[in-house]
Design a protein around this nucleic acid. Structure first.
Lengths: 243, 243
DNA sequence: GTGCGCACTTGTATTAGAGTTGTCTACACA
DNA sequence: TGTGTAGACAACTCTAATACAAGTGCGCAC
C-alpha cells in the first residue's frame, strides 16, 4: 500500500509534539534540518508542517521558525508564578477536579458586582500530590463565559480562557471553621480552621469580570506578604475590622 | 534544541531577581557588563532587559541604569492606614492593654533573626470599643529597646518609639484554632478560628529589629489586600504551600 | 557653594552577516 | 495529474558591532 510521504512525516511530527519532545524548546528544528533528518526535500517538509498548521498544532513566522502553537499564548502570561507553577517547580503535582459547572443566576452581591445576574459558576477542588488543598468557586460574568465548556475549565485556569486583559484585584482573607461539606472535601475534621478568601478581579476598563471564593485548610496553607516599606504600624497591613 | 538567545538571558536574569541576587544592590550591572558576562552584544542584553521591563520586574533611567522595579509597584500596599487610625476614623475607640513586659532571652528562631538572644518581649491586648480584637506579642532587639519603659510601650506604637528608619517587612498569614489562653483573652470559645500572623520588620540596613506575632478572632477581622496588577491566577497572590 | 568637565550610563540608529520561512520555477516519475 | 526533488531568490529575524545623542553622578578647580 502506497502512502504519501508528507503524510507520514506529519504523523511523525505530530507524535513528537504530543510526546512533548519539542514542547520544551518551543522552537522546532528548521525546515532544512528536518529535510536532512527525514531525507526529504524542503518542499515536502513544508507540506507536512502546513498540515500541522491547519490543525492548529504549530505556527510559523517568516525569518524566525516553526514553533508549538500553544506556547506563544502562554509566554506573556508566564511572568508571575501561579500557585500551580510554584507547586510544579517544587516537585508537587497539582490537579484540578471540577465539581460543579453551571450557568445560573449569581448571588445578589456577585450579580451587583457584574451588573448582570447571568453568570457561570464553577466549583472545583484543587489537589497537591493527590491531597486536597483548596475548594474554589469562581463566578464568571455570563457574556464572557458563553464559549467556555466544562473541559475548557478543567484544562486551563480562567485567566487563560478569558482573552481580555485583566488589570487588578481586591482580595479579602479571613479565617473560619470548616462546615461539614467543606470538611468532607478537604478531608479535615468539621470545625477545623480554614482560610477563607474572596477575590474580585477586574479588567483594564475597571469592569468586574471574576468573583472567586477560596477555602484553604489552615494546616497546609499560609499567605506570605512582603511589605517593601514599613507601613507605620505593628499591625499587619491590610487588616480591617469587620462590622 | 534551538532557543532564542535573549529569551535565555531574560530567563537567567529573572531567576537572579527572584533569588534576590540583584535585589540587595537594587542596581543591576550595566548593559555593557552584562554583555561581557553573557558574551552577547548589548542589543541582545537590551532585548532581554526590555522583556523584563514589560513584565514589570525592572525599570531603567537613562544615564543611570537598570534597577529592580518591585518597590514602586508594591508601594500601594504600604500606604494603607494603620488599623488604629482606621478605627478612630470610623468612630471606634482603640485601646491598648499591656499584659506582659520583660527583657528576656528570646525564643530560638527570634534570637537567630536578631543575631542576639537578648530582647524585649511585650504582650498586649488590643481592644476596639472595649472589646478585645487582637493579642499582639512583639519582640524587639534588646539593644534598641533598652531605653523603653512599660509606660512608653503602653502609650505609643513601637514604630514611634524606635528612632531608626524601618524599611520593610515580611508577613505570614494563616488560620488556626484558639487555644484556651487566647480564647479567654479574646472572649471567644476555645477552638474557634483565629487569624495568626507573624511579621518580621527590618531597618534600612536589612537588620531584623522587630518580630511580632498577632492573633485575631476570625469573626471580627479580615485582611484586605489590593493587587494593583492581575497576577495571572485565580489563586490568591502570596499563597504558599506549607512545607 | 558654583560651574565645568569627565566617566559612565541608557536611548537610538545604523551596518552587516548568518539563518530562517515564503514563494517560485524547473524537472522527474508513476 | 498528483507527488516528490532540486534549486534560486525575496523577505524577515536575530545577533553582533559600531557610532552617536542624551542623561546622571562625581570630583575638581575656582
Amino acid at each position: 500500500m502506497r502512502t504519501i510521504r508528507y503524510h507520514q512525516i506529519a504523523e511523525e511530527l505530530r507524535a513528537r509534539l504530543d510526546s512533548g519532545e519539542y514542547a520544551a524548546g518551543r522552537l522546532l528544528p528548521s525546515e532544512s534540518e528536518l529535510s536532512v533528518e527525514f531525507s526529504a526535500s524542503r518542499v515536502t517538509i513544508r507540506k507536512a508542517l502546513e498540515m500541522l498548521r491547519d490543525e492548529g498544532l504549530v505556527d510559523a513566522r517568516q525569518g524566525f521558525g516553526w514553533f508549538v502553537a500553544g506556547e506563544t499564548v502562554r509566554q506573556p502570561l508566564a511572568r508571575l508564578a501561579t500557585i500551580e507553577e510554584q507547586m510544579r517547580a517544587s516537585g508537587v503535582r497539582p490537579e484540578r477536579r471540577i465539581l460543579e459547572f453551571a450557568f445560573e443566576k449569581a448571588p445578589r452581591d456577585v450579580a451587583r458586582a457584574f451588573g448582570n445576574p447571568h453568570a457561570l459558576r464553577v466549583k472545583r477542588l484543587n489537589l497537591a500530590d493527590g491531597e486536597p488543598f483548596a475548594i474554589v468557586t469562581v463566578w464568571c460574568a455570563g457574556d464572557l463565559a458563553q464559549h467556555l465548556s466544562r473541559a475548557d475549565v478543567e484544562r486551563s485556569p480562567f485567566y487563560e480562557l478569558l482573552d481580555i486583559p485583566l488589570s487588578g484585584a481586591t482580595q479579602t482573607i479571613g479565617a473560619d471553621a470548616a462546615d461539614s461539606a467543606e470538611a468532607a472535601l478537604l478531608a479535615v475534621p468539621v470545625g477545623s480552621p480554614v482560610l477563607r478568601c474572596t477575590r474580585t478581579t477586574t479588567d483594564t476598563s475597571g469592569r468586574v469580570v471574576l468573583v472567586s471564593h477560596h477555602v484553604f485548610p489552615a494546616h497546609r496553607t499560609k499567605f506570605v506578604v512582603d511589605l517593601p516599606f514599613a507601613d507605620q504600624s505593628i499591625a499587619p497591613s491590610g487588616l480591617r475590622l469587620v462590622e
